[in-house]
């Protein structure tokens, strides 16, 4: 069953120099207990699309969509009060910077118990017991003592565990993790990913993992959505995506994986994600694509069918009539 269903989501920011489209007609389906990875270079609108779902964008953002529904409820036209009963309870999110995402003025225990108090109306004793249990669940040693610590007294990895504990406190149906490991040391990164995956197995919650790292995707995800310059350019189950990428951008991301590199230097994708002023008329990836021709540069390609991973490309790779480069 579909837990989160997004159709034609577009987010535009009002800037001093006009509107900037950060997310461009994105569709997304996340099922119960599923792990979806959203991958793409920075600036691809991964965070903005999920922040739009959570209702966390600033007022400068204009959100339009045909549908954004969670668990059968229309999130888009819901009044803020009703939305707040879902956000933080059934739909939770964690962020890239665990250090700055926790309030320096309050103990981590206070910050966890707050959600329990407001969403689950637990009394003081029950809150404390649950907080201890959550800390054990996310692998924080000596929970009783750590609950009274302030964020600055804990390491980045510990703080991210606190953030995760806080997010899963009310047993959410879906957890959105926005680059949860990007700010952490490599060894800690693997631990946090393992933790997220095992929490999914234990609780059966859905997980959206936003990342720019194909390595993380390979390790954790089940289905992958590739986003570029605000558009979803391809979507496939993880194994298929790695074996037969259809969009040249996906292929380029995979080529940049260290274990796939053939030369001594890692291949990188030349150029940068287009911003507000250099958005191409046709395919957004065309200026950086080695296969692009005049048609690509002039007309935006519509998404292809499911068999081709919904790739937004006129010349998809790894198809019957065209074998990968």
């Amino acid at each position: 069953m579909t837990l989160l269903r997004i159709r034609n989501l577009t987010v535009e920011f009002a800037t001093a120099s006009g509107a900037f489209r950060a997310v461009d007609s994105v569709d997304q389906d996340i099922g119960n207990g599923e792990i979806l990875a959203i991958v793409g270079e920075s600036g691809s609108g991964k965070s903005v699309s999920m922040l739009a779902v959570m209702g966390l964008l600033p007022w400068t953002a204009k959100i339009t969509a045909d549908e954004v529904s969670f668990d059968g409820q229309d999130l888009l036209n819901m009044d803020p009060r009703a939305r707040r009963r879902i956000i933080g309870k059934d739909l939770a999110m964690i962020f890239q910077e665990p250090m700055s995402s926790l309030n320096p003025c309050f103990t981590v225990g206070w910050q966890i118990k707050e959600a329990l108090r407001f969403h689950l109306k637990m009394d003081r004793k029950a809150r404390h017991a649950r907080a201890v249990e959550l800390f054990e669940q996310v692998g924080i040693p000596d929970p009783e003592k750590r609950l009274s610590a302030f964020p600055h007294q804990l390491s980045g990895g510990m703080n991210q565990r606190v953030m995760i504990a806080m997010a899963i406190a009310c047993k959410p149906k879906l957890l959105i993790a926005d680059e949860p490991t990007t700010a952490l040391d490599v060894t800690i990164q693997a631990q946090i990913l393992d933790l997220l995956a095992s929490l999914r197995d234990e609780t059966g919650m859905g997980l959206v993992l936003i990342t720019h790292d194909m390595g993380v995707v390979a390790e954790t995800a089940e289905r992958v959505s590739v986003q570029y310059a605000g558009q979803k350019v391809e979507e496939q189950p993880v194994a298929d995506l790695f074996n037969t990428p259809h969009h040249p951008y996906t292929a380029a991301l995979l080529d940049a994986l260290p274990e796939r590199a053939t030369a001594r230097l890692l291949p990188t994708i030349p150029g940068v994600v287009p911003g507000q002023f250099d958005r191409p008329a046709g395919c957004l990836f065309s200026p950086r694509c080695k296969f692009a021709d005049a048609k690509c540069k002039a007309t935006p390609p519509p998404p292809l069918g499911t068999d081709l991973g919904h790739a937004r490309c006129f010349y998809p790779l790894n198809t019957a009539d065209r074998i990968a480069s």
């Binding site: 209702g55 966390l56 707040r84 962020f95 700055s100 407001f118």
Partner: peptide
């Protein structure tokens, strides 16, 4: 600040 976004993500009023 980021922690304000966190508080909003928790569904606080």
């Amino acid at each position: 600040e980021d922690y304000i976004r966190t508080a909003r993500a928790k569904g606080m009023s």
